[in-house]
């Protein structure tokens, strides 16, 4: 068991099958899909409640999403802890300010990378809530339920991602 945890990588088929079991466990234990983007809504709603309680109460979206510390909120701290433990045990934990693939193409200026990462994050958060889920909520949990909307959404995630990545790295970056 411990040997497995110290290996740097597993076969993606094995790791994926394990995630498939977790998707089933989420439906079983929480009666919810395994998703990651609702945790960010809850965090944003709790921030709003702290600094602008009236605004949070009046906002229709937060009324619907119930910002609370619950199952879906805890997934994200869990993923951070799990990945941290896993990375440390296999000697893969490294502080990275700019990912090498970005740095080798566009330079190692931290401010520039963080600006584009921030913009990417904003579009991810906006798009995930617009579509009602992310790569896990739609891509894994929704597709597994044979949800028509989830399968269409997952195709759009990758269609948008592939075109944008090709423009960034092939057209602009010349990679």
């Amino acid at each position: 068991m411990f040997d497995y945890l110290t290996q740097p990588v597993w076969s993606p088929y094995i790791a994926g099958a394990g995630i498939g079991v977790l998707v089933c466990l989420s439906f079983l234990l929480a009666d919810r899909p395994l998703g990651c983007s609702s945790a960010f809504v809850k965090a944003r709603g709790l921030l709003e409640r702290t600094f602008n309680a009236e605004g949070e109460k009046k906002n229709e979206y937060y009324q619907q999403m119930h910002p609370n510390i619950d199952w879906s909120f805890m997934i994200i701290p869990g993923v951070i802890i799990g990945a941290f433990v896993s990375a440390v045990l296999s000697g893969q934990f490294h502080l990275v300010w700019v990912p090498p693939m970005w740095g080798n193409t566009f330079g190692y200026n931290t401010a520039i990378r963080w600006f584009w990462a921030l913009l990417g994050g904003i579009l991810l958060g906006l798009g995930a809530r617009w579509a009602g889920g992310c790569t896990s909520g739609h891509g894994l949990s929704g597709s597994s339920q044979l949800s028509f909307a989830s399968i269409v959404t997952a195709i759009c995630f990758f269609a948008g991602g592939i075109v944008t990545a090709m423009v960034i790295f092939r057209v602009i970056g010349g990679l």
């Binding site: 579509a131 009602g132 790569t135 269409v152 960034i168």
Partner: peptide, 29 residues
């Protein structure tokens, strides 16, 4: 789903992570 999915896709490529893997990346440093 289509418009939201495409907005997400642009962000996916700019950031290089999605909302779950970004948390895992933070855990890896």
């Amino acid at each position: 789903n289509v418009i939201g999915g495409l907005i997400f896709g642009i962000g996916f490529a700019l950031l290089g992570f999605c909302p779950g893997t970004v948390a895992g990346a933070v855990g890896s440093g």
